[in-house]
Amino acid sequence: MSTITPNASLYERLGGAAAVDAAVNIFYRKVIADSRINHFFTGVDMDRQAAKQKAFLTMAFGGPHNYTGLDMRRGHARLVEMGLNDSHFDAVLENLASTLSELAVPADMTDEVIAIAESTRSDVLGR
């Protein structure tokens, strides 16, 4: 049994893998329904896409991951060619924030998650 201490990591405070599992369905549904960005996801197998979203959320939740900036660049290069830009990145962050609000995550923790996601912006957009 784990006790949540004041020093617990963001990932632990959010609820770890279970929190990611809860968030991934809500987040992915929002992305599919968002006409600003959903064209980047058509034709991609839903299982594979959900697994990628889960990897992304785990990272944004401060969880364990081995992704490097280079992985982020490679992984999104095809989308950048399709026109991925700041407005799309902002839309993803917006969906992320509203997912957290739906899960009743407190504002300070939401800010931490958004800050981690924000830190990947230049790698994702390939600059």
């Binding site: 594979r48 697994a51 889960k54 990897a55 969880g63 364990p64 991951h65």
Partner: peptide, 10 residues
Amino acid sequence: YSCRSGFCQT
């Protein structure tokens, strides 16, 4: 393989 963290399922 890809993420090596148990999430991407590659």
